[in-house]
């Protein structure tokens, strides 16, 4: 008596898990191989599916880290649930704004006018900075400008 059942289960799960260090090295090797793969495929610049592929590889790497380095494969119950829920929320939170953007009304935006055609927001004197991909280079060195924004 005296403890909640969950804790006992957790303890049992954790007891079974100890194993040799070889497993970590194996995972490390796999991660490095996947890194090389993603860099190589990334260099090719596959047009549409490039990012998808890169994210699939990243997810595989992430899963390996999670399951073995972070021992999620041994942690059961609430720990897994917490993680699963957070990932689910991230995905939904990403999906909904994208759906919004994809279905927004754009008809009234005049032809040739993308977001970039806007006049600059003028806080101080540097109204033009950062517009049109930042075409405007100011006099003087860049370093000091970025270090201390003049206001």
């Amino acid at each position: 008596m005296g403890i909640a059942n969950e804790s006992r289960e957790e303890e049992q799960n954790m007891r079974e898990e100890h194993h040799g260090a070889g497993r970590y090295w194996l995972i490390w090797g796999l991660l490095l191989v996947l890194t090389v793969v993603t860099v190589l495929t990334g260099r090719i610049h596959i047009p549409t599916w490039g990012l998808v592929l890169a994210l699939v590889i990243a997810s595989t790497k992430g899963t390996l880290v999670l399951l073995y380095f972070m021992h999620l494969i041994d942690h059961r119950g609430a720990n897994r649930l917490v993680f699963a829920v957070s990932i689910l929320f991230v995905l939904l939170m990403l999906a909904i704004p994208l759906v919004d953007l994809g279905t927004r009304y754009r008809g009234a935006t005049p032809p040739g006018s993308t977001y970039s055609d806007l006049q600059a927001l003028d806080i101080g004197a540097d109204a033009q900075e950062g517009r049109y991909g930042g075409a405007i280079r100011k006099e003087g060195k860049m370093g000091e400008e970025s270090g201390a924004p003049k206001q």
Binding site: P110, P111, S113, D117, L118, L121
Partner: peptide, 14 residues
């Protein structure tokens, strides 16, 4: 504000 203008909505200083 015009139809078909290239300038798009202008964004004024505040």
């Amino acid at each position: 504000v015009r139809e078909g203008a290239s300038e798009g909505p202008a964004y004024d200083a505040i």
